[in-house]
Design a protein around this nucleic acid. Structure first.
Length: 579
DNA sequence: GCCGTTTTCGGCCCGACTGTTTTCAGTCG
C-alpha cells in the first residue's frame, strides 16, 4: 500500500463524513492527514510494520488516525468509510464532482430519491424533481445537467501524470525480467499530451513475450482485456487506466515506435509522403513498393531520414506543420528539462504550502537549480492565510538576509503570487510589490466573468509596473474546469508590449497555458516562464510536464526566462522592472 | 481528530456569491 492509497482512502472518508454532516473539524483532520501522507517521503506501510516506529510521530497524525491507518493497512479500508459507503452508495463520491451540488444537497437527494448512480441523478434532474426540494430550483437542475454532461465527457481521459507514474511503475516491475532489452512508452504519453486515453508500452528483447505475462499477472491489474501472442491489454490500478503492452522484434522497433507514438494525423501525413516517394510505411518498417525490400525500420531516425526528413521530436507530431519544417531542416531546437536553471512559482508554510522555505530551497538545490522564487499567496486568499502588505515587505527583507549569508547554497528570489482582483487591481499595494524580486499575477476568483470583463481585468493588471508574469493564465483545471474566456490576442499583445511573461504552469492538473495557447502566444512574440506551482518539495519534479507542454508548443530555450544563467536572469529581471 | 512557550480543554478559517428566499443556507475557492 502506497502513501497515496492511504491518502485517497482518508480523503474519501472525509468526503463521506461531510455528506453525513459530521463534525467539520474532525473532517478537516482526515483531509489534513490525507494531504500530509500524500507528501510524506517515507512509506507509511514501512513505519506501521516497524515495531520501533510510530506513525503518530508524523505531525498531523494522532492516535485516532493512527488506528485508522492500521486498519487501512490491514484490509484496505476502514470502518467509518465502509459504513458510510453502505449508507450513501459509492455514487455519492462521484456526485461531489458535479458543480452546484455540495455535501448537504447530495445527502438530501440520496435520501429522498435513493440515487445509486450518475444516471439516477441525471434522471431526477430531467424529471424536474429537484425544484420540489427546499432551496433548489430550475436553475440548479440545469446547472447539474450541464455538469453531468462535462463529467461524462472527461471519463476515459487521464492526467498526464497518472499515465507517467503508471508507466514508471510497470517499467520498474518489468526491469527485473531477464531477456528484456528495452521498455518504452509510446502513444500520447511519449508525445507529452496533457491528458491520456490509454498507455502504450513497447518491449523488445529475446524474452519480450515474458513481459506480456508479467503485466497480465501484476497485482494491480483490475481486469485483463485481451491476451495475444504479441500484445496484452489490461485495466490497471484504481484509476482503471487501459495499458497495452506489445512485444516487438528488434529490427522493426523503430517502425513500431513511430507507428504507436502517433499522432494518427502525423502518421497519415507521413504514410502519404512515403507513397509519393515510392515507399510503404507500416509498423513493420519502410518498404520500397517496387520490390518490397525493406529500407528502414530498426530506428525512427533511419525512417525519417529515408523519407528526406529530420527526426521529429514526438511532442511535435501532430501534423501541424512539423513535417514541412523537418523537410526544410528547420525544426526548432526544443527546450529540454536540463535547460531549466530555476523554478519561479512555489508555496511554503507561510500560506498553503506544506514545507518551509528552507525545505523547498534544499529540494530545489537537489534538482540542480541555481535559483528559485518563493511565491506565496496574497491576502485575498484568506483561506490560505495569504500575505498582506506588511508580511510581503517583511518577507522581502528576510530573503535579502538569507541571500547575504548564502547558507542555503541557492539564490532565493522574493516573490508573490498576487491575486488579480475582480476589476483587475492587484491585491497588494504597488509600494509593497516594489520590494519584491518577482510578482506572478493570478486570477483565483470571479472566474465566470463575461469575456469582455475578464479581458479588461487582465489588461488592467498589466498596468502594474511590478508584474513579472501571469500565473496559470487561463485558470483551467484539466478534466475539471474549462478555461475562462477572454480576448487572448489582445491580452498577449499587451503583455508582450509590457514585457510580462506568460507562465506555463507545470502542475499536471493545470498545464496552463496549454500547448496550443503557448504556440499562439509565441507567434505574437510572447516570452514565458515554466514553473511548478509546487506546494510540496515532491511537486518540484512536475517540471517535466511543463517542459513537455513547452515542447509541444515548439518553444526553445531562448523563449523561457528561467533557462537563463543566474547573472543574466537577475539582470533580465532588473531590466524589466525598470522599463 | 489534532494540538499545546496563552497546554490536556477548547480552540481550530473565512468571505463572496448564488439562487433561493423574505433573511439565508449551501457552494466555492
Amino acid at each position: 500500500m502506497e502513501n497515496r492509497d492511504f491518502a485517497r482512502i482518508l480523503s474519501e472518508t472525509a468526503d463521506l463524513m461531510e455528506i453525513a454532516g459530521e463534525d467539520g473539524f474532525r473532517i478537516r483532520s482526515y483531509r489534513n492527514g490525507a494531504s500530509i501522507l500524500e507528501g510524506h517521503t517515507e512509506r507509511v506501510s514501512d513505519i506501521l510494520r516497524d515495531p520501533g516506529r510510530k506513525v503518530t510521530d508524523i505531525p498531523g497524525i494522532g492516535k485516532g488516525l493512527a488506528l485508522v491507518l492500521t486498519e487501512i493497512e490491514a484490509r484496505g479500508s476502514c470502518d467509518t468509510r465502509d459504513k458510510l459507503l453502505q449508507r450513501f452508495s459509492p455514487a455519492a463520491l462521484e456526485f461531489l464532482k458535479i458543480q452546484g451540488l455540495g455535501p448537504k444537497s447530495i445527502a438530501l437527494l440520496i435520501e429522498r430519491f435513493e440515487l445509486k448512480s450518475m444516471d439516477d441523478l441525471e434522471r431526477v434532474c430531467r424529471e424536474q424533481k429537484l425544484r420540489d426540494l427546499p432551496r433548489m430550483g430550475a436553475k440548479l437542475e440545469e446547472k447539474v445537467l450541464r455538469s453531468i454532461e462535462q463529467y461524462k465527457q472527461r471519463t476515459g481521459r487521464y492526467l498526464l501524470s497518472i499515465a507517467d507514474q503508471t508507466a514508471e511503475e510497470l517499467i520498474q516491475h518489468l526491469s527485473s525480467l531477464t531477456g528484456i532489452d528495452s521498455i518504452t512508452p509510446a502513444g500520447s504519453l511519449r508525445r507529452g499530451k496533457e491528458t491520456i486515453g490509454d498507455l502504450d508500452l513497447l518491449v523488445t528483447g529475446p524474452n519480450a513475450v515474458a513481459a506480456l505475462e508479467a503485466v497480465a499477472t501484476h497485482p494491480k491489474v483490475q481486469e485483463v482485456l485481451g491476451r495475444g501472442a504479441n500484445k496484452t491489454s489490461v485495466k490497471f490500478g484504481r484509476e482503471g487506466l487501459q495499458v497495452d503492452v506489445r512485444a516487438l522484434l528488434h529490427d522493426s522497433f523503430g517502425a513500431a515506435m513511430q507507428y504507436f507514438t502517433g499522432s494518427k494525423e502525423h502518421n497519415v501525413a507521413l504514410r502519404q509522403r512515403a507513397v509519393r516517394m515510392g515507399f510503404k510505411l507500416s509498423e513493420y518498417g519502410l518498404f520500397r513498393i517496387s520490390d518490397e525490400v525493406r529500407v528502414a525500420g530498426a530506428t525512427e531516425e533511419e525512417i525519417y531520414e529515408a523519407l528526406g526528413l529530420q527526426w521529429i521530436p514526438p511532442e511535435l507530431r501532430e501534423n501541424l506543420g512539423e513535417i514541412e519544417l523537418a523537410e526544410a531542416r528547420a525544426l526548432p531546437r526544443l527546450v529540454e528539462l536540463s535547460d531549466i536553471r530555476g523554478d519561479l512559482h512555489m508555496h511554503t508554510t507561510a500560506t498553503d504550502g506544506r514545507a518551509t522555505l528552507e525545505e523547498m530551497a534544499l529540494a530545489a538545490r537537489a534538482h540542480g537549480y541555481d535559483y528559485i522564487a518563493i511565491t506565496d499567496h496574497s491576502k485575498a486568499l484568506a483561506m490560505a492565510f495569504g500575505l498582506d502588505e506588511k508580511r510581503v515587505t517583511d518577507f522581502a527583507a528576510t530573503v535579502r538576509k538569507i541571500n547575504e549569508t548564502g547558507d542555503l547554497g541557492i539564490h532565493i528570489l522574493s516573490g508573490l503570487e498576487c491575486d488579480i482582483l475582480q476589476a483587475g487591481d492587484m491585491d497588494i499595494e504597488w509600494d509593497a510589490l516594489a520590494e519584491l524580486d518577482l510578482v506572478i499575477g493570478s486570477v483565483h476568483s470571479h472566474m465566470n466573468q463575461e469575456p469582455a470583463a475578464m479581458t479588461d481585468r487582465l489588461l488592467r493588471a498589466l498596468e502594474c509596473p511590478h508584474l513579472t508574469a501571469f500565473g496559470h493564465p487561463t485558470g483551467r483545471l484539466l478534466l475539471h474546469r474549462d478555461e475562462f474566456p477572454f480576448d487572448f490576442d489582445r491580452v498577449i499583445g499587451a503583455a508582450v508590449q509590457r514585457g510580462v511573461r506568460m507562465e506555463i504552469n507545470a502542475s499536471p492538473e493545470r498545464l496552463d497555458l496549454s500547448a496550443n495557447h503557448a504556440r499562439a502566444a509565441k507567434a505574437k512574440g510572447a516570452k514565458f516562464i515554466v514553473s511548478t506551482d509546487a506546494h510540496h518539495p515532491k511537486s518540484l519534479a512536475n517540471m517535466k510536464y511543463g517542459i513537455a507542454t513547452a515542447r509541444r508548443a515548439g518553444l526553445a530555450r531562448e523563449d523561457i526566462l528561467n533557462t537563463l544563467a543566474p547573472e543574466q536572469f537577475l539582470s533580465e529581471l532588473r531590466t524589466s522592472k525598470i522599463s
